[in-house]
């Protein structure tokens, strides 16, 4: 509680944990979309921000560059990742394949406890949609996908899925003016859940593929539209 406040006295943080804290912190900052794509990040600023040595931050940046969160080029320094429309389409297509495979495995291997949790999450999403709680729905949506991934009990697939960086892609290309949740989104999640609960791997795979493909198509349509006709300055009269 209040670990940056005036009164923090928790002991026991070692420097190994400090590096992973800096990694987690910078990664979450990048995933939140708060730093525009292509922004330069200097080591000095990041060491000040995350309270680590320069060598530690350098190691963090190397790891993030390897994973694709940032790019590192000789004359351009370290910059936040910017995806072209083609790269974005490629990543989202890969997501479709991996996530539908995970859903199929979840139908086979989800425990009763995991199914109960999925049911709770879905109920929360329904509740949020009724109330018009967009942010609550999004949070539930993320949790749903996370729970399906874990219920698959397939480490290799899950790890591959986690390397995809598709959240970064979504952030860069999200359409802020579209109705949210996307029409049909809740029903698609219900279909996925139903297939898992009835232990039908083929149906789960198909339902997830349909769901992710719809999201991908909506996003790509918007991205192509914007490329053809870039949005104006929102603050202009």
């Amino acid at each position: 509680m209040d670990s940056n406040g005036f009164d923090e006295t928790e002991a026991g943080r070692t420097s190994a944990t400090r590096q992973s804290q800096a990694y987690d912190g910078l990664r979450s900052l990048l995933l939140s979309g708060s730093i525009p794509p292509g922004t330069r990040l200097t080591e000095a600023d990041l060491t000040r921000m995350f309270n680590v040595s320069r060598s530690t931050m350098r190691a963090v940046l190397v790891q993030l560059a390897q994973e694709g969160y940032v790019t590192s080029e000789v004359n351009r320094g370290v910059r936040t990742r910017s995806f072209s429309v083609e790269e974005a389409a490629d990543i989202l297509e890969a997501r479709e394949t991996l996530e539908s495979a995970l859903a199929g495995k979840a139908a086979e291997r989800a425990t009763d406890e995991e199914i109960a949790e999925l049911r709770r999450t879905l109920r929360t999403m329904e509740e949020c949609k009724t109330r018009g709680d967009q942010a609550g729905y999004s949070q539930g949506n993320r949790r749903f996908h996370q729970q399906v991934k874990e219920a698959a009990h397939q480490q290799t697939l899950a790890r591959a899925y986690d390397t995809l960086l598709y959240p970064l892609v979504m952030r860069q290309y999200r359409n802020l003016t579209a109705p949210h949740p996307r029409t049909g989104s809740l029903e698609e999640h219900q279909a996925i859940f139903l297939a898992i609960v009835t232990r039908n791997p083929e149906a789960a795979t198909a339902a997830m593929r349909h769901h992710v493909a719809s999201a991908r198509q909506a996003l790509m349509l918007q991205a192509r539209r914007e490329r053809a006709d870039p949005p104006g300055d929102p603050s202009a009269p």
Binding site: D2, S3, N4, G25, S32, G33, S34, M49, S138
Partner: peptide, 26 residues
């Protein structure tokens, strides 16, 4: 104006205070 989403959080070093919030920083 639809007041159904929290505004962005002020620029700050990411840490426990923002854990799980998933709000943009601005």
């Amino acid at each position: 104006r639809k007041a159904n989403a929290f505004g962005p959080v002020g620029p700050q070093a990411p840490g426990p205070e923002l854990d799980g919030l998933d709000l943009p920083m601005s």
